[in-house]
Amino acid sequence: MNESTITTAAAISVLRQHINGRLIGQAQVVDQVLIALLAGGHVLNEGVPGLGKTLLVQALAAGIGGKFKRIQFTPDLMPADVTGHVMFDMSKSKFVLKQGPVFTNLLLADEINRAPAKTQAALLEVMQEHQVTLDGKSMPVGKPFMVLATQNPIEQEGTYALPEAQLDRFIIKINIDYPTAEDEVLIATRYALQSFTGEGEQAQQLVDVPAAQRDCAAIEVDASVSEYAIRLVRATRGTTLLRHGAGPRASIALLRCARAQALLNGVDFVTPDDVKSMVLPVLRHRVILAPEVEIDGLGVDEVLANLLDKVDAPRS
């Protein structure tokens, strides 16, 4: 393991502790968000309100010394409200550029499925290109740039479900669940006395994210492990349990996330365990259940777990 990777792994460990100290009882969620950050992807969060999604992003922004902005998606939100627009300044008699909230490092897109398709598409374009075109000029957004979009699993009335092609842009989908009883006691005790939002927290750069992303990309992947990842993704295509399997972008995402997972574990090579542990978050939003499976009451996670059991681990 080279010096840079060791330093990065140590820094990530500090960042992880920093966030876990603020967001209690969601260690797995924190890990997955960090993996998405290291892999240079975006995160789709699904969970009921009040589980600390905003706090997570604020703590992360503070930990990487980055800027944080939040958009509450509503049915009347326009693309210009996300990306920005050009307006005429009467006093200066010229057009001035008004940058939208996407010009940040961490963007919390709250309840993304409440906005109509064109607004979602504007955000997803920024996610893909990492730049915004305003008045014919392309402007890069902040670096690093990560979107944490949230969806509410309940209250689906009046929402615009994200199309599969757009869901594919999110590198992972995290299901946030309620904390355990012990953690909840700790949360209630701590946040009864101090601010819950974490606003005004002093930003400190615990991790140099672009450098960490470079280190992550340099993590070694053995051919047998890559082949294992591909086999896992391909297993979603040949089964009658799923109407649509995951595409090649899923294979890329799986390997990128497995690399990040290895870095998070402090090693510089990817094991089949790293790949296997990322299958659910990477694939759960990229596959569609067969109608009969849905009728039987099975969930995506159950079907994927079933498929995992059918794919042989690498033969070294």
Binding site: T271, D273, K310, A313
Partner: peptide, 9 residues
Amino acid sequence: FRASHTEAE
């Protein structure tokens, strides 16, 4: 042990 088990499993 099953064929789908990884080393850590």
